[in-house]
Design a protein around this nucleic acid. Structure first.
Lengths: 341, 341
DNA sequence: ACTGAATATTTACGCGCGTAAATAAAATTC
DNA sequence: GAATTTTATTTACGCGCGTAAATATTCAGT
């Protein structure tokens, strides 16, 4: 009944030597079936499990993976982290999740802790603009790392991200085909490099079509995107500075705020009768189907991103260590049509 | 330039004995100022940090705290976890965050890992109905634990949660004072014990006022509350089974979905002219101010909850171990008036 | 029952660090 | 400058476990 505290004690109680017990936990099939049964019987009586951290200290290859996201309170990251976490568990790994909370200092501390843990690999979505490049470089030297979401050139063994051009192409094409072409709404100081890529893609796509791009850039910094979008709505609608009746947002969270702003002003959004504006966006944020109206958006293929992350890291782990060349994968978007455009 | 891998090496390179270096990291003020300077100089050159997990293995009192929430993709938990995490860092602890993803198996694995880590303490929001009581009981015996959000009688050293009665009282009182009294909207199989407490509080408060309580219970299970709320809206509005024009929701996520459903039907919600329904709710979910209309709700005092959690655990850690009696704290709500009611 | 192969046990060391005791060196006191 | 106090070094052990080498035991096949 009393809790067993180490393998020594468990081995004694189950009448088997400690090294054999150790072998069992490493790979149950590596011991004779009769001893395996004896161990498993004892396991049910005493329910002992080896201490993960002591195990990792001595093993070269551990079964832990780290997951680092820049801001977990953002449901987008919560969602992608959730999927990667589940996939890791299914693959027999023990994931540990960290959030940088938008701060460089915390991101650095996470990397330190993770280095000490000696994980088999790390899925790392860096802060981006705010990241400490030197720290990340050192970290990636010590730990096999797959970057995701936000790329940092040349770091890590691979990058799995979104094909921002595809995201914007889908939405711009759709909006142009079904009405007037959109202006592009963004915040002036985006934290994430994807924002810049999307703006540039928008400009390139519009120009390729022979259309004039209009970028609407509102004030705002930090991670409170919705409020920035809401205030932006009032600003641009007060000043009537919106160049078109169709607005494409850099990301859903801005659009969610913008829609709230429009509702406050009694402005109808959508593609139906009596609608003053059409609104579309990017990310397929978990809440974008519950906005009013529901948001037309270019969706991340969460599953594909997560799968590719896992696949990349695992092929790295199994087939002798690091990659020779950095392996970049960009996953295209899927257009989700809803009521907002 | 090359990375130092252990304290031995660092001690040699900085010309100081390892035990002294160890003392320094335990408490920099415990060594003579001249040696402290020498260590700190060497630190800048070699930037070495002790391995956290090796440290924890040997120390009785560690500086790590665990945070466990049932479902991190729920922004409510993301938010409360974020605040507790930040507070812990400010207090000099290293928090590690875990999400059970709504599954008992994962919750149990988290507890195992946490036991091995020997944290100074754990802030634990259990799954509730789905928790493995025996596993939690054993965990709480091994690790100083403060339960939060969801109470499990008799477990852990303390519980910090919401005063559900206060939540419901605020909303029911407000709605009754400014219009008709509400019916109570909930899902039939709530995962969280707070839901039951809120329903019972609603019934008790209505009856105390001599009013007849109406509970509207919609089908639905799991963590997809918004969708349950949205479908619930269509169901009850189709069948015209809503007993009142004022609806109080068990929690904001249900209300968010319900509002989306109302919008889809062109039904205006709010307290103004031409509004068919008033809607209010509980939790002050991070998104509740961006719904259409913005949601009137009883807010958690996140800061107070986090502060109380920290305070409780720290007084436990400092003042010789465990509490004699279990210390329950219920934090009252704050009414947030917005456009929906 | 005998032989060779497969598996277990014993013994011993290492991981990166905390920590205690005995000893040596440095700083403080008068 | 000698005696006393403070701090550092040396040495050694422990944490919970992986792992290697030598030895002992068990198993399968004939």
């Amino acid at each position: 009944m009393s809790t067993i505290k180490n393998m020594e004690e468990f081995a004694r109680l189950s009448g088997i030597s400690r090294p054999t017990v150790s072998k069992y936990f490493n790979d149950p099939s590596s011991v004779r079936s009769s001893t395996r049964e004896r161990i498993e019987q004892a396991l049910e009586v005493f329910d002992y499990r080896p201490n993960i951290y002591a195990v990792n200290q001595n093993r070269s290859l551990t079964k832990n993976v780290g997951i680092v996201v820049p801001y977990l309170a953002d449901p987008f990251f919560a969602e992608i982290a959730r999927i990667i976490e589940r996939r890791s568990i299914e693959a027999g790994f023990s994931p540990i999740l960290y959030s940088s909370h938008g701060e460089q200092k915390i991101e650095n501390e996470i990397m330190e802790g993770l280095t000490a843990l000696k994980p088999a690999g790390v899925f790392f979505a860096p802060l981006g603009r705010l990241s400490d490049r030197r720290a990340i470089e050192r970290f990636c030297r010590d730990v096999p790392t797959v970057l995701f979401d936000s790329n940092i050139e040349g770091m890590g063994e691979a990058f799995v991200g979104s094909d921002n051009y595809s995201f914007v192409q889908l939405t711009v094409e759709y909006l142009g085909r079904t009405g007037s072409s959109p202006c592009f709404f963004e915040m002036s100081k985006p934290v994430n490099p994807n924002a810049n890529k999307r703006r540039n893609a928008y400009i390139a796509i519009m120009e390729a079509e022979g259309l004039e791009p209009h970028v609407v850039s509102v004030e705002g910094e930090g991670w409170g995107f919705e409020e920035i979008g809401r205030q932006g709505a009032h600003t641009v609608l007060d000043s009537q500075s919106l160049p078109t009746d169709t607005v494409l947002f850099s990301n859903d969270r801005l659009a969610i705020g913008f829609l709230a702003g429009c509702y406050e002003r009694g402005l109808r959004v959508g593609r139906g009768e009596g609608c003053a504006l059409r609104v579309a966006s990017h990310d397929d944020h978990p809440f974008s189907r519950f906005t009013c109206p529901a948001l037309t958006t270019a969706a991340h293929q969460y599953d594909l991103v997560a799968d590719k992350c896992m696949e990349t890291l695992f092929s790295m782990i199994e087939s002798g260590r690091r990659f020779s060349a950095r392996d970049d994968t960009l996953i295209p978007a899927k257009l989700i049509l809803r009521a907002s455009a």
